[in-house]
Design a protein around this nucleic acid. Structure first.
Lengths: 355, 355
DNA sequence: TTGAAAGCGCTAACAT
DNA sequence: ATGTTAGCGCTTTCAA
């Protein structure tokens, strides 16, 4: 049984059909100048008739390109990565690029080598780094020595060496804290993020500074290390809520920990928000999936990723390195008020659901 | 300021250093037989000394390969895709392949063309399709005409034409239903999935057949179209729970709808599981994030994806097409009993949390 | 505005 | 067991 020939159309055949040289076809494909209107039309016609698609391997080999952008991550949050990926992949497709996803184990001491290896094999045209990998010394160094274009999302350290996109975690945190205070809360518990994430410190600072601004003393007992984890967040929330003088609100620095706080409160027979207000951060789907729905900060995750891809693609198309100062893009967050926050009540409820 | 030369090491240089021909180096790289021990060692040494990394573009162009596997999806569930991706990417890395992620809009009538275009440009060595794209006629046809190796995850239709991996949704659903019945439930509400997903029908059939097996009549009023959606699931749950003769249990065919049912129950002052048992399907993180934690079915998502990648890589390495019957891999599910299910109580509680 | 020829770095087919 | 040679399909000089 003869295997039907699977050979694809090549630039040669297009050139023949259009009665031009392959260089002219190449010019058309690459939108180079210097092709007459009429020739251009003939070539386009031939391309369409033959259903020609240029071979990216060949283009890459000849032009030292790959049309590939790498998304490097080490983030266990499915929703975060899903948003990042969606933003990046959409922008890539618009620009004729493709997204290669590569998870890394940042605890592996050879990760730098592995990165180097990948880069030199694949000739990626750029890499997007997400937190917390974004501040990983080994990975950063590998990327630097390979001199590959790099855009980081929300980096914490070393902000001068490469372009990055970010939102103002500090301001967002202050704004949420201010909102809680405006509701009348004075004893506010705070659940810290993972120490490896730059955002952890930013969000905590925003909380502290806003309290100070309102001359509300910060009770160290109310600040707990939740590591962005639902499980650890639960333990922290339980400690907070069984305190003799328990807080009337908890500001968790991500939604998972906020959801954990809500769950603990309910388990303890406390009603949210009547007995306890809970605020989250990120606006992941979990914020709407639990009851009551979470008041939280909407991060522009997908737009940050799109902006990152945009910087990379722009650079790849221009074929020009960035110059100092490195570009950066600031995207806006939003405080989303839902059902989990309300003014504090002095009378503890019986734990009945409201409504 | 002179740009430092960035030229990479080529096979030529390795050959020179090792005093062999490039073909021999090529043999070593590709682990072909027919290289003496001593030569092999010399080449490996040269590779290490020069830190040589073969250019994948060149390898791809010459050998008509790409070392790229595509993950095509159209699934809005971040957790599902995250698991799929993790499984696939892990297996790819083991095999020296890379994963390209491509979301598609299955409502776009030109999606078939777009797929064709992508394939012929990139020369992917294989494609993994996830539900519900896995049953999309246009995409399937495009993939078929391009004759690209394809492995589908949990396909519903056309199961003879290409390899696939799957779990037994039907059996899982029966098992969960049996469990609910064993607890003493007789009026069980069922929340259907999205009509485009093959699993929707399987899960429903399992439910129906298990009821029949126990001679429990199926009340059509208790079966509602939740579309796998949290929001729609909420509406359905509300209808179910405000029925005069409301069910004592709800079997939602995914976790999101189960979470919605729990939320609605709590809002209505019903305690879960005392007043209402709720079972989910999938064991996504939401199952543990809500309170009470969901009894659900653990799908082997990531292992299915790994198996899919495995089939593709194996075929790519052998460079042999699959023969009939197409390979398929069945992976095991697991019923995970948590806190959201219990025997029905005849005395409606006051809606207080237990414990 | 257009084209010819020389690679890009590798693998394949065929020597030896 | 090892080498030679001819491409893979494109982009890049450089010339016309």
């Amino acid at each position: 049984m003869a295997q039907p020939e699977k050979r694809s159309i090549t630039i040669r055949e297009v050139a023949d059909l259009a009665k031009v040289s392959i260089k002219t076809v190449s010019r058309v494909i690459n939108r180079e100048a210097g092709v007459s209107h009429e020739t251009h039309a003939r070539v386009m016609d031939a391309i369409a008739r033959l259903d020609y698609r240029p071979n990216l391997n060949a283009r890459g080999l000849a032009g030292d390109r790959s049309f590939l952008i790498g998304l490097f991550y080490d983030n266990p949050s499915a929703h975060y990565m899903s948003d990042v990926q969606a933003g990046a992949v959409a922008r890539c497709r618009e620009g004729g690029f493709h997204l290669l996803v590569e998870p890394w184990d940042s605890t592996d001491p050879t990760v730098g080598d592995q990165v180097l290896n990948l880069i030199s094999q694949l000739r990626l045209e750029g890499v997007i780094l997400t937190p917390p990998l974004v501040d990983h010394a080994g990975v950063l160094e590998a990327l630097r020595t390979s001199r590959i274009p790099l855009v980081r999302i929300a980096p914490d350290t070393d902000r001068e060496t490469a372009p990055f996109v970010y939102m103002d975690d500090y301001a967002a945190s202050r704004q949420m804290t201010a909102y809680l205070i405006s509701l009348g809360h004075r004893r506010i518990g705070f659940l810290l993020g993972h120490p490896d994430h730059g955002a952890t410190e930013q969000r905590y600072r925003g909380f502290r500074d806003e309290l100070a601004e309102h001359r509300i003393p910060l009770d160290p007992e109310l600040v707990r290390p939740g590591h962005f984890s639902y499980r650890i967040g639960m333990a922290c929330a339980e400690q907070l809520l069984t305190l003799a003088d328990r807080p009337t609100a908890i500001f968790a620095s991500n939604d998972d920990m906020a959801a954990a706080s809500v769950a603990v409160a309910q388990r303890l027979g406390l009603s949210v928000p009547a007995d306890l207000s809970v605020a989250g951060f990120d606006d992941t789907p979990v914020a709407r999936i639990i009851w009551p729905q979470l008041t939280t900060i909407r991060q522009p995750i997908s737009r940050m990723a799109a902006a990152a891809a945009d910087l990379l693609i722009d650079r790849a198309v221009r074929r020009q390195p960035w110059t100092h100062p490195m570009p950066r893009r600031l995207l806006e967050f939003e405080v989303v008020v839902r059902e989990s926050t309300a003014p504090p009540s002095s009378v503890p409820s019986l734990g009945r659901a409201r409504r």
